[in-house]
Design a protein around this nucleic acid. Structure first.
Length: 436
RNA sequence: GCCGCCGUAGCUCAGCCAGGUAGAGCAGCGGGCUGUUAACCCGUUGGUCGUCGGUUCGAAUCCGACCGGCGGCGCCA
């Protein structure tokens, strides 16, 4: 490398495949994904962040450059100038016949080999490198697109994006454990949910949504739990249970259609045949769901929450996500509104994915009445001092209101049919893993 | 929090049950091959068998503790 570099003005690989500039000289640069040499012809596959393209090189045409090929490693960063040619044998039907090749940055021996792919522990230890692989890239692209679609839908439908604090003093969910943080000698916690703050915000904006991280200090050793996960939450003034469920149904449908349209390539790399579910989504009550589970051998009695097995039994009846509504008050957090027609149950719902992927979302109507809310807080033996600002909202104009929260990793896991939510987030945090 | 499984080369595993100082494939390295797509062919380097302790003449192998990871339950997004 000396003087001015020739690889500053480059083409993006996606643009090359879009415009197919056959016969033109282009410059590309990227990371080497694959090298193969067959006698006097060499092939180098590079990844530039936008796409993947093959470089070809013949000894008979470029003898000096050809010698360089033996020095190349997987993940070296190189720049290549050459002619775009059409060739059926190249991946994607195009390749670059190299005239010039320069190594911009050398790589060590790449640890992620064919056999490493069988080893989740090793791959997660090397997540910072694994993230470059086509499958991980595809999942994270779907994740990014899911988030984009959420913002699109929310913005188009009158919601304001609202940023709730991460440091909090009070729990949102009864029983769920919080991560303590030292806050200048005071003890605060990492947030479990933006909901309580959203209930404050609806008096200002009517409808709000939050897309951000949440933390739960539960030692859950399962494939659907993370200690740090993302969810989209929303809250709507004046909305009842019906409007709440309709909003979640429309949002889900919008996301699924959008993913099917915009992530065709990613889904195909993942080998997933994703069909957006048609709406309306099925709805059954808790009591009906319990009958299904008990009919299939469950011993769960009315008033208890469903076990994982119950959930699997119930979901086996459906081939798309479905709502379970009107959960007993005993299974829900303190803020859920009781059904005026049957006070044993709450105006609440879960959205459950089929095929054992489990809960995707939870929501319902909130208690708007001050005394009722205080009574529920007392019943669940929560510390009402730290919730005083929240209960006070009921004293300054509190119409009926509802909302829900949907787990981003669980949704991405279901769409991409992943074995674990850990694959649906760039750097997963679980009880046993906070690195890399 | 409870229960179960696994830890041998950079990676995937065999060897352990019936104790006698370690083997394959991939990766790496060297060579060959003018169209590779998980290329192929020939050769080759590489391991204080997770750690510590015990039993034994002798431990990857048997026993115990610990560490690390995985899965299930509970809990939930």
């Amino acid at each position: 490398m000396s003087g001015a570099v020739w690889w500053k003005n480059v083409e993006k690989v996606t643009d090359i495949f879009r415009s197919k500039p056959i016969g033109r000289t282009v410059t590309v640069r990227g990371w080497i994904h694959r090298i193969s040499r067959v006698g006097g012809v060499a092939f180098i596959g590079i990844r530039d962040g936008s796409g993947y393209i093959q470089i070809s090189l013949k000894r008979s045409e470029k003898p000096e450059l050809f010698k360089l090929v033996d020095k190349l490693n997987i993940e070296d960063v190189i720049a290549v100038r050459g002619i775009i040619v059409e060739d059926k044998r190249a991946p994607g039907g195009l390749e670059v016949r190299a005239h010039d090749l320069e190594i911009i940055s050398k790589s060590g021996v790449w640890p992620i080999t064919r056999s490493a792919v069988k080893s989740p522990g090793f791959l997660f230890d090397n997540r910072h490198l694994w993230i470059r692989s086509p499958k991980v890239r595809s999942v994270l692209k779907v994740r990014a697109e899911v988030c984009r679609l959420i913002r699109e839908y929310m913005d188009m439908n009158g919601f304001i994006e609202f940023h709730a604090p991460i440091f909090v003093k009070s729990a949102c969910e009864g029983g769920a454990t919080l991560f303590p943080v030292d806050y200048f000698g005071d003890k605060v916690y990492l947030t479990q949910s933006a909901q309580l703050y959203q209930e404050a915000a609806i008096a200002a904006f009517g409808k709000v949504y939050t897309l951000g991280p949440c933390f739960r200090a539960e030692k859950s050793r399962t494939r659907k739990h993370l200690t740090e996960f993302w969810q989209v939450e929303c809250e709507m003034a004046f909305a009842d249970l019906e409007e709440d469920m309709k909003t979640l149904e429309d949002l889900s449908a919008y996301i699924c259609r959008g993913i099917a349209e915009r992530c065709e390539e990613e889904l195909s790399i993942l080998g997933v045949d994703f069909k957006p579910p048609t709406t309306p989504l099925p709805r059954i009550t808790y009591t009906e769901a319990l009958e299904i589970a008990r009919g299939k051998g469950s011993e769960t009695i009315w008033g208890e929450d469903f076990s994982s097995r119950d959930e699997a039994l119930i979901s086996s009846v459906f081939d798309k996500p479905f709502f379970v509504t009107h959960y007993p008050a005993s299974t829900r957090s303190f803020y859920h509104m009781l059904d005026p027609y049957d006070p044993r149950v709450t105006l609440s719902f879960d959205l459950i994915a089929p095929e054992g992927y489990g809960e995707l979302a939870t929501g319902g109507q909130r208690i708007s009445d001050y005394d009722t809310l205080l009574r529920r807080i007392a019943e669940q033996e929560l510390r009402k001092e730290t919730l005083s600002w929240y209960t006070e909202l009921r004293m300054y104009g509190c119409p009926p209101h509802s909302g829900f929260g949907m787990g981003i990793e669980r949704l991405v896991r279901w769409i991409c049919r992943l074995p674990s939510v850990r694959m649906a987030i760039p750097f997963p945090r679980t009880p046993d893993r906070v690195e890399p």
